[in-house]
Amino acid sequence: MLSLDPTCLENLLTCSKDILPFRIMNQPELFTVTCHSLSEAEKEHRILSSHGYLCLLLDVLQSELQRSQSEAEPYRQAIDYIAANLHLPPTVCNVAKHISLSNAQLYRIFMLHAGCSPKQYINDQRITKACRLICSSSMPINLIGYAIGFKYESYFYRWFKNQIGITPSEYRMLTCTRQLP
């Protein structure tokens, strides 16, 4: 990652104060400068200095944008893999392996894009799908547990109660207002 020297930033700000309004037109080298206190040579020097600093700043911003976009693709691949494999359920290791990243890289990308760990994201997706299936289908609770990757009904019940605070059956009765067929 590129970084700007504090002196460079200070010079940029100082130059910007002296070159009151300036406008970059179709070409970056064309400026309109309004400044009464500087000589023509000083104006030209300040303009060129400011232009160099602005170009450097634009390069830094562009490289940060490219880095962010390059990290977005593995994140999209990971969330697609998780969504397609909730019935397994996917583990952090499986997701990382699928998109050819280390667990640490996957963790960093999820913290950046989702604000949580991959494991928490997987759990959130599982509970969201479980709640949706409980309310939108007449599917038995044990099959819903299987659909999101639980082999044992009792473990699904305990996990669901730990996540939501009530059992899946209670959740169905309390939150699903429409009658299921």
Results as ranks from 00 to 15, higher is better:
Leu101Ala: 07
Leu112Asn: 11
Ile122Pro: 01
Arg126Asp: 02
Ile99Ser: 04
Pro118Phe: 01
Phe110Ile: 09
Pro118Thr: 06
Leu101Lys: 14
Leu112Ala: 10
Ser102Pro: 06
Ser117Asp: 10
Leu106Tyr: 00
Arg108Asn: 14
Ile122Cys: 05
Lys129Arg: 15
Ala96Ser: 07
Asn94Gly: 13
Asp124Cys: 01
Gly115Ile: 07
Val95Cys: 02
Met111Cys: 06
Cys93Gly: 09
His113Cys: 11
Ser117Glu: 08
Ala104Glu: 13
Ile99Leu: 11
Ile127Lys: 04
Gln120Asp: 10
Ala96Leu: 03
Ser117His: 05
Arg108Val: 07
Phe110Trp: 04
Met111His: 11
His98Arg: 15
Ala104Trp: 05
Thr128Val: 08
Asn123Met: 12
Lys129Leu: 14
Arg126Pro: 03
Lys119Arg: 15
Asn123Ile: 07
Pro118Trp: 01
Tyr107Asn: 10
Cys93Met: 10
Tyr107Val: 01
Asn94Ser: 12
Arg108Lys: 12
Phe110Met: 12
Ser100Trp: 04
Leu106Cys: 06
Leu106Ala: 05
His98Val: 09
Val95Asn: 00
Cys116Ser: 10
Val92Tyr: 00
Gly115Trp: 02
Cys116Val: 15
His113Asn: 14
His98Tyr: 13
Gly115Cys: 03
Asn103Lys: 15
Ser117Val: 10
Asn103Met: 13
Gln125Gly: 07
Cys93Asn: 07
Ile99Tyr: 04
Ser102Met: 11
Ala104Met: 09
Val92Gln: 05
Val92Asp: 01
Ser100Tyr: 06
Cys116Gln: 13
Arg126Val: 11
Ala104Asn: 11
Pro118Tyr: 01
Ile109Leu: 10
Thr128Gln: 14
Ala104Cys: 02
His98Gln: 15
Ser117Tyr: 03
Lys119Ile: 09
Ala96Arg: 00
Ala114Arg: 05
Phe110Asp: 03
Val92Thr: 11
Tyr121Glu: 04
Asn94Asp: 10
Ile127Ser: 06
Val95Gln: 00
Leu112Phe: 09
Ile122Leu: 05
Met111Ser: 06
Ile127His: 02
Val95Ile: 08
Leu106Val: 07
Ser117Met: 07
Asn103Ala: 14
Pro118Val: 04
Ile99Thr: 10
Asn94Met: 13
Arg126Trp: 02
Arg126Ile: 14
Pro118Cys: 05
Arg108Cys: 07
His98Pro: 01
Gln120Pro: 00
Cys116Leu: 05
Ser100Phe: 09
Tyr121His: 12
Gly115Leu: 02
Tyr121Gln: 06
Ser100Asp: 12
Ile127Asn: 04
Ser100Cys: 13
Leu112Thr: 13
Ser102Asn: 12
Asn103Ser: 14
Leu112Glu: 14
Ser100Arg: 15
Ile109Cys: 04
Lys97Pro: 00
Ser100Val: 10
Asp124Asn: 12
Ile122Arg: 03
Gly115Lys: 01
Val92Cys: 01
Arg126Gly: 04
His98Thr: 13
Ser102Val: 09
Gln120Ser: 07
Asn123Cys: 05
Val95Pro: 01
Gln125Pro: 00
Ala104Lys: 14
Ile109His: 01
Lys129Trp: 03
Val92Leu: 02
Val92Gly: 00
Gln125Tyr: 02
Ser117Arg: 03
Asn103Asp: 15
Arg108His: 11
Lys119Trp: 08
Cys116Asn: 02
Ile109Lys: 05
Ala114Ile: 10
Phe110Gln: 04
Ser100His: 11
Ala104Thr: 13
Tyr121Val: 03
